[in-house]
Amino acid sequence: MNLTKAEIVELRQQADGRSVRADLARRARLILLLAEGLTWSAIRAKLDCNDSYIALWSKRFAADRLAGLFSRHAGRQRYKVTDRLEARVLARTTKHKPADGSTHWSTRKLAAELGGDISHMTVSWLNQVELWFTKIKRDVIARGVFTSVPDLKRKLMRYIRKYNEQPKSVKWKYFDPTRRITPDSIITVH
């Protein structure tokens, strides 16, 4: 197996790296051993693996080079949140209370209420988006003065670029019930 100098460097870093996942390091060692010309028998003994492991990863490396060494899980198809589904989530949370008598929706309760059309993870994500837009509204729009739509756009983009220089994760803490977001406090921009 012929390797470029860059591939050898990358494979050695993966094989010897302390912060590299063990499965990826093992695959990198496999490719390096194959490149050195070791037999499958010798590789099986060194890596404690079988012929199907060697065949799988050498074939993937031959086809996709370094990218081929990463695991591929079939998983499920990428989930797309449609405008209609987002509207259903917002309508349910703003116009209905949870059936169990609680004061707020949890992501799991809301997902179950919507009949399995959406996962609870898609619901922390829509919430994250809502929190981001609330932050923009509070920091830029609420007290801003805009001379035109392009002026608004320019100021929003400046804020976003500056924020992205040192982004902060959203913290899931809630202390002040007087600062609750209500449907009438959300603005609509067309």
Results as ranks from 00 to 15, higher is better:
A45W: 07
D48I: 11
S52E: 13
D151N: 13
W57C: 08
R143P: 00
D151G: 08
V9N: 11
L69Y: 07
D151P: 06
A42Q: 15
R108A: 12
H104N: 00
R84H: 13
A28Y: 01
S19L: 10
V145I: 11
G115K: 08
N127E: 09
S148F: 09
T94S: 09
G75L: 12
I141W: 08
R72W: 10
P150M: 06
V140F: 04
R88S: 10
S71A: 15
L38N: 13
L131H: 13
D23W: 10
T103S: 09
I118G: 00
A28I: 02
R12H: 12
G37I: 04
A111G: 03
L24K: 10
S102C: 01
T82I: 04
F146L: 04
K135N: 07
R92H: 02
Q13I: 03
A91K: 13
F133G: 04
R92C: 11
K135R: 14
P98Q: 04
H73E: 13
V149G: 07
S119A: 12
W40Y: 12
D48N: 13
F70M: 11
G68K: 08
R21V: 10
T39N: 04
W132T: 08
S124F: 09
R76Q: 15
A15Q: 12
V140P: 04
I54A: 04
T94D: 01
G116P: 03
A63E: 15
L85I: 12
V20R: 07
D100K: 02
T122I: 09
A91N: 09
S71H: 13
G144W: 09
L24H: 07
L24Q: 07
L114Q: 06
A25C: 02
T107L: 00
S52M: 08
T122N: 06
W132C: 05
P150A: 07
S148K: 05
G115M: 10
L38S: 12
V89A: 01
G75W: 11
